[in-house]
Simulated scan of single mutants.
Amino acid sequence: MTETTLHGLALALAIAGMGAFALSLDAHWRRFAGRRPLARSARVGLRVGGGSLIAAAFAACLAADPPTMAVLVWATMLTIAAGLVAAAVTVKAWGRSD
């Protein structure tokens, strides 16, 4: 894989991981799923899945760059991913009339 492809993969994995972390919180879950409560096992699954996706994003960064650069790129991608997920949650909140 090319460096660009690996960076794109890392960003997609980071976004998915941050999204899973966001959905593991009751307030965000209710915004996306309605009023149904999130089961404890689903909450744990989302958190484990989110952590695994973020770890996979780090592995993709390591495959694309030397370790010192990979840490910097990964941290930057996590920041971008968190911002995008926060923006998505905010836009979704504007669309609801609770």
Rank of each mutant, 00 (worst) to 15 (best):
G34R: 03
L53P: 00
L23D: 03
A22G: 04
S52G: 15
S52C: 15
L53Q: 01
A22M: 02
K92C: 08
S41Y: 08
V91F: 15
A70K: 11
V44T: 15
A33G: 08
A86E: 08
A86L: 12
A59N: 02
A64H: 03
A64V: 04
W29G: 06
L46T: 08
A64K: 03
T68I: 11
S52D: 08
D65M: 06
R35G: 10
M69I: 14
T79Y: 10
A81M: 00
R43E: 06
D26F: 05
F21Y: 05
A55H: 04
A75N: 09
T90A: 14
A27T: 11
G51A: 02
A56F: 14
A42V: 10
F58H: 07
A93C: 07
V71Q: 13
F32H: 08
I80M: 04
W29H: 12
S24D: 05
M77V: 09
A59G: 02
C61M: 05
A87C: 13
M77H: 00
A70I: 14
G83H: 11
A39W: 02
M77N: 00
R43H: 06
I80C: 00
G51Q: 00
T90N: 10
R36F: 02
F21I: 03
A63M: 12
R35W: 12
L62G: 06
D26L: 07
W29C: 08
V73T: 07
D26A: 13
G45P: 11
W29D: 05
A57G: 13
P67H: 09
W29A: 07
T90D: 09
V91P: 09
L62W: 05
A64R: 03
L25C: 01
G45R: 06
G50D: 04
A55T: 15
M77R: 00
P37K: 12
S52F: 08
R43W: 05
A27Q: 12
P67D: 06
L78K: 03
A59R: 07
M69W: 02
K92A: 12
A39M: 13
P37G: 13
A82M: 05
G49N: 01
W74E: 05
L46I: 13
A42L: 08
F32Q: 05
R43C: 02
L62M: 11
V71T: 13
G34Q: 00
L72F: 04
A60E: 02
H28W: 04
R35S: 14
V71L: 15
F21V: 05
V85R: 00
A56S: 12
G49C: 06
R47C: 07
V73F: 06
P66K: 09
W74S: 01
D26S: 13
H28S: 12
A33R: 09
L62F: 08
